[in-house]
Write a protein that binds this DNA or RNA. Structure first.
Lengths: 106, 106
DNA sequence: CGAATCCTTGGTCATTATACCAAATAGCCA
DNA sequence: TGGCTATTTGGTATAATGACCAAGGATTCG
């Protein structure tokens, strides 16, 4: 695999990796409905604020969300809605697997 | 976040996480064209066979690829083609980011 | 059987990710 | 200004990843 190909793959993997965490999936899902400040997210997630802030940073660095400061609060919103397409495919992977499992049981 | 929600998110994150590696993206892309044995993949990727084998295991455990043994060889193929949709969205994230960068330069 | 090929698994090590607490920063308001 | 709230960042401990080598099946074929 040549260097250019690898660089391309790494850039793409970085974006997918940003989605590859339960908390961050939650965040993306929530932001697909409405923008949220860090404090609201923290409240919903139930982790330390610093942890949530870092998750949001990962998503921002990947270009998936954007932030906007208003007063002391920072509001995050979804920048690229197509990431929601990930969900439907993930569902179909889970469904396919579940159906296979069923076959083995019966 | 309640326990059930977390379990759902973890199952989904596991699948996305399986895609979140340059080598595994390469594998998925390649398998979208045709099935391949481990030895062919290893040849293309240029890593140790054991490394490639483990990457394939990750993808299989996530339900993204399937394997079939024929003789001494094991052929892997894509089980859920919709994962290819990931690529187009990832491209659009990269494009959006690139355009933002351009604005800053000019 | 024994050798060769293909693949997986065990072991080890370096790197990365993630969580929390504590401290620093920024903006608002009394 | 000083305190209050919201957020980020530094520090650190622990867990998870990923790479390689070596060893262990499985299968084919002479």
């Amino acid at each position: 695999m040549d260097k250019t190909t690898l660089a391309r793959l790494e850039a793409r993997a970085k974006i997918i990796k940003a989605m590859a965490h339960p908390t961050r999936l939650f965040i993306v899902d929530e932001l697909s409905r409405q923008e949220r400040c860090v404090c609201e997210m923290t409240e919903m997630i139930g982790a330390d604020v610093s942890t949530v802030s870092r998750h949001l940073t990962v998503l921002r660095n990947a270009g998936i969300v954007q932030d906007e400061k208003r007063g002391t609060m920072v509001f995050y919103s979804l920048r690229v809605p197509c990431v929601l397409n990930f969900f439907s495919c993930v569902e179909s992977v889970l469904e396919t697997t579940a159906k296979e499992q069923m076959k083995l049981v019966r």
